[in-house]
Design a protein around this nucleic acid. Structure first.
Lengths: 227, 227
DNA sequence: TTCGGCTAGTTATATTTTTCACAAAATATC
DNA sequence: GATATTTTGTGAAAAATATAACTAGCCGAA
């Protein structure tokens, strides 16, 4: 069996295509060509065709793609036809905000439980979601059939939390801690690194081409005062 | 004047390097080689050297990089030596969670104001940050010297909000709405798309290689019932 | 039924990004 | 002071990704 390696850039774009198709469907369109899709949403038509072609021949030459049909295919490919259960570790501001983040439900994810180490928080509820003791993570995760974990704890605790997650057999992790984590085996980790995004914006605002300045290349060795 | 185009992948890594250096400095290290850095944090040493070399000769052959010195350089390059003021549009769960997100302060960003359209929220405070009427965005942004905007509103309002942001002259935007936005001119937008991250995890859990299944390539045209 | 127009799927090309490998330059040692 | 050792900075090779060009298939009209 030949398994073609599919790039994450490709699968990320599938999410985008699905969104675009949903919008078109809401507008009442029945079919769309790769070129139409590209023009409307500022994408590249060759890339759309290529991305889709990894998974099947979904289009009809001379017509394009049947929107409803393609939506079903993409939903299946992305595994969005199966419900996933999410456990969020860290019941601080971020964790609780995520607990009722609309996007989870939209993508067929249900937040099943929050976890924290703070005894004062345990037993409380955020919306319909209860906060459990992180000490009982494995049991609670099993009980609630959690298959996706979200790390929303301070950076210094993130690796420890990840170890617990991996020990409980969970294979998919979303990490909000600004810290590169070490993963074992076939666990998939998605880093959502707000710090990098912020600093990227800061770089953009500071960069010489935005100030008509010049890049000065200092030379560490030459400028050093001899000892 | 030759301005070398620097990839965003490179600048993103500079953030990571800075973090790693901070950690090493906290441990008391004075110098580090690209190889040492790479081994400790699971990076590629050639890439570290190349990334840094775009901006100057910061290292000393035979020694490596002086940690404090390199930290200063990276801080300067990333513009983290200058304070930035952030305005968050959307005072819902996400917006308010971001308002006191620790990472902002860490990267020298100050959240100066929240904005919302809901009259009930206007005038309230989240921590030290007041919620203002989105109608007065431009004036308030100017008053508080806001140079970075964060879009934390539902997808359907995101483009409108972005237009207002761009009209007010702000050049750096972080967008949490799962919607590709149209940017004009030299405005920099960073998309933080949780939906894509989630669906990427969903794909990982669903993908055939995780289930020993086989990719079936349907053929839209051949399978279609003739009209 | 044939032909022309359109559009998917695919092959080829270009671009970007990463990795390798080595000369040059600094330090440490004898 | 010569020499061995270390490690940078960088040009070249490799890999990954994106774009363009082409081929073949489907539809609809005459």
């Amino acid at each position: 069996m030949k398994v073609e390696k599919i790039s994450e850039l490709t699968t990320n774009r599938l999410s985008i295509y699905l969104r675009c198709l949903n919008e078109l469907a809401a507008q009442g369109a029945k079919t769309v060509s790769s070129d139409g899709l590209a023009k409307t949403f500022h994408l590249n038509s060759a890339q759309i065709r290529k991305d889709l072609a990894y998974f099947g021949e979904f289009g009809v030459r001379g017509v394009g793609y049947y929107i409803d049909e393609l939506r079903k295919h993409l939903t299946k490919i992305l595994g969005l036809d199966k419900r996933h259960c999410v456990g969020i570790i860290g019941a601080g501001r971020l964790g609780t905000a995520l607990a009722d983040y609309y996007g989870f439900a939209q993508s067929n994810f249900t937040v099943a439980a929050l976890f924290d180490a703070d005894q004062n928080k345990i037993g409380q509820k955020v919306g319909a979601v209860e906060i459990f003791d992180i000490k009982n993570f494995a049991e609670t995760a099993e009980k609630y059939k959690i298959d996706v974990a979200v790390i929303a704890v301070p950076a210094e605790f993130a690796q420890d939390v990840l170890e617990q997650i991996m020990n409980s057999g969970i294979k998919a992790v979303m990490n909000f801690a600004p810290m590169p984590l070490r993963v074992k085996g076939d666990v998939k980790i998605k880093n959502v690194d707000l710090t990098i995004s912020l600093e990227s914006l800061s770089y953009f605002l500071a960069k010489p081409s935005n100030k008509n300045g010049k890049i000065l290349k200092p030379n560490a060795a030459k400028n050093r005062i001899k000892k």
